[in-house]
Write a protein that binds this DNA or RNA. Structure first.
Length: 838
RNA sequence: GCGGGUGUGCCGGAACCGGUAGACGGAGGGGCCUUAAAAGCCCUGGGACCUCGUGUCCGUGUGGGUUCGAGUCCCACCACCCGCACCA
């Protein structure tokens, strides 16, 4: 019986044993280890965002890993030494919630999920290096996360301060600004509000400028770079000092600095606004019942209400204060207010209010009946005077170009010139200075949760905040935390907090810090730890970091655009400046893979449209799952699973299987002779090799697969009559090599069946002779006045007059050549266009 | 409001530098094989029109423009998606 009939393509039979062998034999582990490898030649650091172990892998994981693995396998075959590590982002709230809700042990829960994910990863043929595995919840790892914190503390880049922080009730912890989306918690969606708390921060603002400028030098999607640019929010302006109209507690007028991007409008500053909690306001308004009520009202107001600017219900936005300010330029006394539209933590927490040129000031002035003074005469962009502004009838502030009026010596100047002159004069008079400001705030890193690395700090009544000596790290989480308590389990633990003395003075009343570090701290440096995950002497070897960083290719979801990706950039820059590495950026090239959705919507259990990788590989096999994802669309585009069908991919792989087995039968029976189509097949093979290689180099997997399918069809045609010899073997072997990065199992199996002793994945990437593609005769499109009117066949490289004559001789073409021929356009070997008049 | 992105058959998507629009696949339709089914294989596959051809016209969100020639370049617009936004 022929093999084909005896053995159908059965992925369930061939895939699991191969997968298990690759895992057991650590087939894809890098040797020598990166920590020992000092040469950067021909090396490639391929990184994919490590998974959070909240359950088994979902389709999104399969998508990211499939794209990544195809890249990695292809690179290996082209001769690169690829570092391809995997690990788990294993600290975080779900484990803690499982412990609280179901009494699970978070450690056990986490590692059970990891084991499930690991076995799925292995089953799907992802060729990770199983010698570099790391777990962020392992003390071996988080010891160094704590060390990183202490390093930044020592550098002055970590500090503790009191401030109004974002609080999520449902997660029972503070959040970083980056974790608040439209006033809601990025994790759980609950509304976030502000409350004053003393927390730990990393000084990301220290690197604001470099974080912004560094984007120029990295190859990331423009979309992500823009997200970061927006987030950093650089603006140029000036700081200007205003004085109170009266004398303060010290006997002199109090000085208040404002930040403005429009110093040119200072003559229009008809009042002054403080943030409600501004220290000068709290000092001067002490004991004022109206102010206290106002403060309370502001504090109650949620972030969301504050943001919904025009809302009717938001109520009165500010109150008149019991003092006035002086406008340094006009010398006028202007009233001072406290209003919630001025934020304490942006700029200086106080503004000069220019109602004519700022929408918020305009609205507030209208509400309070304050003067709206025109200080600018609108012009067109090229300076033509337009009608003057009339404050009586205006309905919104004027933000366009113009020339200054009512502005003393600056009258008549275009506003841009006035801005420069006023900044210069402010500096000359010692009233302030030019200043660049950022929207970016420092990163709040402490969390009131207990499944994370404890902040390695001891609070001593004598010495204050004392860092734990690095030799005492890690500060381990107690194994017996009680997650049923209300509040923080770490805080409530019987011994953790108090069983410590001050490392500096030995004071027995010292206590441990009971907060833990944000999970984004864990993931801000894991790509460095992959260089030496077991090292107990240091976080990573500098030489290895210098050889392997920046990561050549990072693949992951766009949801981390301003979280993980920004934090990692900050950490690398900070550690560079501490001398621990030389790279300026962590990730040179970034790919954001698309989402896997269903019927236009995100998949979810509650919607009942969930497809999991397990179902797909059980029905069709891992190769079909991988191939389907890569063939469906470009890696960065979303895949709607309802639109794609694994059956097409499965059909094609079955065909490859069958054609190979048929060929083996022919060889075995000694009838393997090439048929009449042998030249066409050789040409098709060369075309597939050349075309697919180009596509894979730029990660166009869908078109690469299309070219492999075309070759498969050519093999089918060449063997249809039962013939097929060396040229067919060559075509099949080329096909298997090209397909190996995408469908690693079927290619491996068939490669061995074709008699090879080593894996297809160890083969050098196939090459082809491009001259095979040269044709003796070419078909030329004949156009008349740009419309296709016929096709002719001429020898390759034919001269224009030959082609033109042949074209005119064509009946269909001649029918359109009634008018006078005025021009001929000839594109050699492709097209001739005859232009006629009339 | 500001910034970024995307619009091509029934569907996913191709189309290098401006040169045959719709590669490759899916769904559909027809056929071969089979007692039948599955599997496999073959044909068809944007629209309209007619004189039914090796035919004509239309067709890449809309309207203009450049060009011998535009899905591709330029201008204006429409729709949808994403991000930012009381940031002074």
């Amino acid at each position: 019986m022929p093999r084909v009939e005896a053995e159908r393509y059965d992925p369930q039979a061939i895939e699991p044993p191969i997968a298990q062998r690759w895992y057991d034999e650590r087939t894809y582990s890098l040797s020598p280890r990166p920590s020992a490898d000092r040469s950067g030649d021909d090396t490639f650091y391929a990184l994919t965002m490590f998974p959070y172990p909240s359950g088994d892998l979902h389709m999104g994981h399969a998508e990211i890993f499939t794209i990544h693995d195809a890249l990695v396998r292809h690179l290996r075959m082209t001769g690169k030494r690829v570092l391809n590590p995997i690990g788990w982002d294993a600290f975080g709230l779900p484990a803690e919630n499982a412990a609280r809700d179901r009494g699970a042990d978070p450690n056990r829960w986490t590692y059970d999920n990891i084991e499930e994910q690991r076995s799925t990863i292995v089953r799907l043929g992802y060729s990770f290096d199983w010698d570099t595995v790391l777990y962020t919840c392992d003390p071996v790892y988080y010891r160094w996360t704590q060390w990183l914190f202490l390093e930044l503390l020592d550098a002055g880049l970590a500090y503790r301060k009191e401030g109004n922080v974002n609080w999520c009730d449902s997660c029972a912890t503070v959040l970083a600004n980056e974790q608040v989306v439209d006033g809601h918690c990025e994790r759980c969606g609950a509304e976030v509000y502000r409350r004053p708390l003393t927390q730990w921060y990393f000084r990301t603002t220290e690197y604001a400028d470099e974080l912004l400028n560094g984007l120029e030098a990295i190859d990331w999607p423009e979309r992500v770079k823009n997200l970061q640019r927006n987030w950093i929010g650089r603006s140029e302006g000036a700081e200007i000092t205003f004085r109170t109209a009266d004398e303060g507690a010290g006997g002199d007028p109090d000085e208040v600095v404002v930040y403005t991007t429009r110093p040119d409008t200072i003559f229009g500053a008809t009042y002054f606004v403080f943030a409600p909690e501004h220290p000068l306001v709290t000092e001067r308004m002490q004991g004022d019942a109206d102010y206290d009520a106002f403060l309370e009202q502001v504090a109650r107001r949620s972030e969301l209400e504050r943001v919904s600017s025009m809302s009717e219900e938001r109520g009165k936005r500010g109150i008149r204060l019991n003092f006035d300010m002086l406008n340094p330029f006009t010398g006028e006394t202007i009233p001072a207010y406290a209003a919630d539209y001025v934020l304490m933590d942006y700029g200086t927490g106080a503004i000069m209010a220019v109602p004519i040129g700022d929408q918020r000031d305009f609205e507030f002035a209208r509400q309070e009946g304050l003067e709206i003074r025109p200080i600018i005469r609108p012009t067109t962009d090229d300076g033509q005077l337009l009608e003057a502004l009339d404050p009586e009838t205006m309905t919104e502030a004027y933000l366009g170009p113009g020339v200054m009026i009512n502005s003393g010596d600056y009258d008549g100047m275009p506003w841009e010139e006035a801005k420069e002159r006023i900044i210069a004069d402010v500096e000359a008079k010692g009233w302030g200075r030019a200043r660049v400001n950022y929207r970016l705030r420092d990163w709040l890193i402490s969390r009131q949760r207990s499944w994370g690395p404890p902040v390695p700090i001891v609070h001593c009544p004598e010495c204050g905040e004392v860092p734990v000596p690095t030799e005492d790290l890690p500060i381990e989480l107690p194994a017996d935390l009680d997650f049923q308590v209300s509040g923080s389990p770490l805080d409530q633990h019987p011994t953790f907090k108090h069983d410590v003395s001050c490392p500096r003075c030995g004071n027995e009343d010292a206590t441990r810090d009971v907060d833990t570090l944000d999970t984004f701290v864990d993931s801000s440096w894991y790509f460095l730890r992959y260089l030496s995950p077991e090292d107990d002497q240091r976080a990573w070897p500098k030489e290895a970091a210098d050889a392997w960083l920046p990561v050549d290719q990072y693949t992951g979801g766009v949801e981390h655009a301003v979280l993980h990706l920004l934090y990692s950039r900050f950490v690398v820059k900070a550690m560079r400046d501490r001398g621990y590495l030389s790279a300026d950026e962590p990730f040179q090239r970034l790919l954001n893979q698309g989402q896997v959705i269903m019927d236009g919507a995100a998949m979810s259990k509650s919607k009942g449209n969930l497809v999991v990788p397990g179902e797909v590989y059980e029905e069709y096999g891992a190769d079909t799952l991988r191939g389907t994802m890569l063939f469906a669309s470009a890696p960065e585009d979303d895949i709607d699973w309802a639109d794609v069908s694994p059956t097409g991919m499965h059909k094609w792989l079955s065909r490859v299987w069958r054609l190979t087995l048929e060929h083996l039968d022919r060889e075995e029976q000694g009838r393997a002779k090439d048929g009449a189509d042998v030249d066409a097949l050789r040409k098709a093979t060369a075309a597939a090799i050349i075309g697919a290689s180009e596509d894979l180099d730029v990660r166009k997997y869908n078109t690469a697969i299309a070219k492999m399918m075309t070759l498969t069809n050519a093999i089918l045609d060449a063997t249809r009559d039962g013939s097929g010899g060396p040229a067919v073997r060559e075509a099949l072997e080329s096909l298997l090599a090209l397909l190996a990065p995408i469908c690693p199992f079927i290619t491996e199996e068939l490669w061995f069946r074709l008699g090879h002793a080593t894996s297809v994945h160890e083969q050098p990437w196939p090459t082809a002779d491009a001259t095979l593609l040269e044709e003796a005769e070419v078909e030329i499109v004949v156009q008349v006045n740009g419309k296709v009117r016929g096709r002719i066949t001429v020898p390759a490289g034919a001269e224009q007059d030959v082609v033109e004559a042949a074209a005119r001789a064509d009946d269909a073409v001649a029918a359109h050549l009634a008018g006078e021929l005025v021009k001929t356009v000839y594109v050699p070997d492709k097209l001739v266009n005859l232009v006629v008049k009339g």
